[in-house]
Design a protein around this nucleic acid. Structure first.
Ligand SMILES: [Mn+2]
Ligand SMILES: [Mn+2]
Ligand SMILES: [Mn+2]
Ligand SMILES: [Mn+2]
Lengths: 222, 222
DNA sequence: ATTTAATTTTAGATTTGTCTAAAATTAATT
DNA sequence: AATTAATTTTAGACAAATCTAAAATTAAAT
């Protein structure tokens, strides 16, 4: 039967899950940095997670989520992303203002609530940032996508996901007229600094840096 | 500026508010009983609430909410009831299964979220149990209502609110076919035990005890 | 291979919210 | 009025989550 975890435990599991995705290996400092806390606090929590069999951990030797830990993390992520979808689609929030609120809502415990919400929303496949929403069993399908640097010239594509989702990045994208679902094509790539000129559908041309280009993912046919 | 309170603080304020409504005077034991905790824990919290100027309290002399405390309590109640309305109207929950979930959701802090939700729901005036929903400023209007014992014979009325909302009561009412909005009239009152015979619209006659009658409130014309 | 630096862990405190047991106060009974 | 009972508060403890400062371990640099 489904056990109840504290919000803190859930936040740690989620952070470790996300760090595992990108790096593979996760360190105490990584987690401290991600959760805006101190390394000593992280070590304390690692021991608790190990005691609950949510983490495989040997001191000084590193750690990773257990199967159970991964399972719990995926359910938190499911809740987070469904609430984000709800906020944008039903309550007309901007995609750049839902993360904080979802950070709280993801800890509401009722399984029935989240399954009803999923149904109410029409079983969406991805959240407002293009990230996949795990189903009730934790399964999800990664959409095939490339970043703008690897998008062929003059190929119309649709923005499907954003890598760096910092407020600064989202503000820049909003300003350039780039949102999830935006149709665009790369018109020119400058070899000098890998900056790109983009034609955004129904808008004028814009220029983006390599840093931005690497964090905007798109889907396109073929 | 809106200060952030802990869930525990919010639960205490809400409990004291509700106890104040019914009795007028509230005791340490009342609160302990309401929140399923110990009198010593209540005293601890009373001191904290006083320090935060949310409560007027002199030890051994009793206590009551300050204006600020009442204001905060009303905002929590607003959130609780709006979420209950959402769960019933949008996610098809039964009115007897939403309280627990709302007990968690009421602590989500975003003011913008709750105002957007209010708008999305069409600014409902009362929750699924017939209790009034305070507006963004904490104002609400009490619907004029009488309990079934005071409803004149053969007068068609509409169920508007339930006093005792225990699972046992809600189960009994569900079984008898009495829900919020149900149209009914009192056909007979037995002086012996104050039990009533009711004609419920589109159903057969049912009998209810005085205890039940005192906890079912109705609105009617004139 | 030592020495130095960075990382991680431990030791010991602190805050919040809770508890039990005992003391203080108020209320109720003889 | 004195005694007993109930209520409320204090004293001291504990679990959870955090912190700082110091120690242990591992990694990097001479
Ligand atoms: Mn969170
Ligand atoms: Mn997201
Ligand atoms: Mn609550
Ligand atoms: Mn209610």
């Amino acid at each position: 039967m489904s056990v109840k975890y504290t919000s803190s435990t859930e936040n740690y599991l989620k952070a470790i899950f996300h760090l595992q995705k990108s790096d593979g290996i996760v360190t105490t400092n990584d987690v401290a940095n991600e959760l805006q806390t101190r390394p000593a606090s992280v070590t304390d929590m690692l021991k608790k997670l190990k005691a609950q069999k949510l983490l495989i951990y040997e001191k000084y030797k590193g750690f990773k989520l257990s199967n159970e830990g991964r399972k719990v993390a995926l359910q938190i992520i499911r809740k987070h992303r469904l609430w984000e979808y709800f906020l944008v689609e039903k309550l007309s929030f901007g995609w750049d203002e839902v993360h904080e609120i979802a950070e709280e809502l993801e800890h509401i415990s009722s399984k029935k609530l989240i399954d009803r919400l999923d149904e109410y929303l029409g079983f969406p496949k991805s959240d407002p940032h293009g990230d996949p929403i795990p189903d009730s069993n934790g399964k999800f399908t990664l959409p095939k996508q490339v970043d703008l640097l690897n998008l062929p010239l003059n190929k119309v594509a649709e923005v499907s996901s954003i890598g760096d989702q910092s407020p600064e990045m989202l503000e820049l994208l909003g300003d350039k007229g780039i949102a999830l679902g935006t149709k665009l094509e790369v018109k020119k790539k400058f070899a000098f600094d890998n900056s790109l000129e983009l034609k955004i559908k129904n808008q004028s041309m814009v220029t983006v840096s390599e840093h931005v280009a690497k964090n905007v993912f798109v889907k396109y046919d073929e």
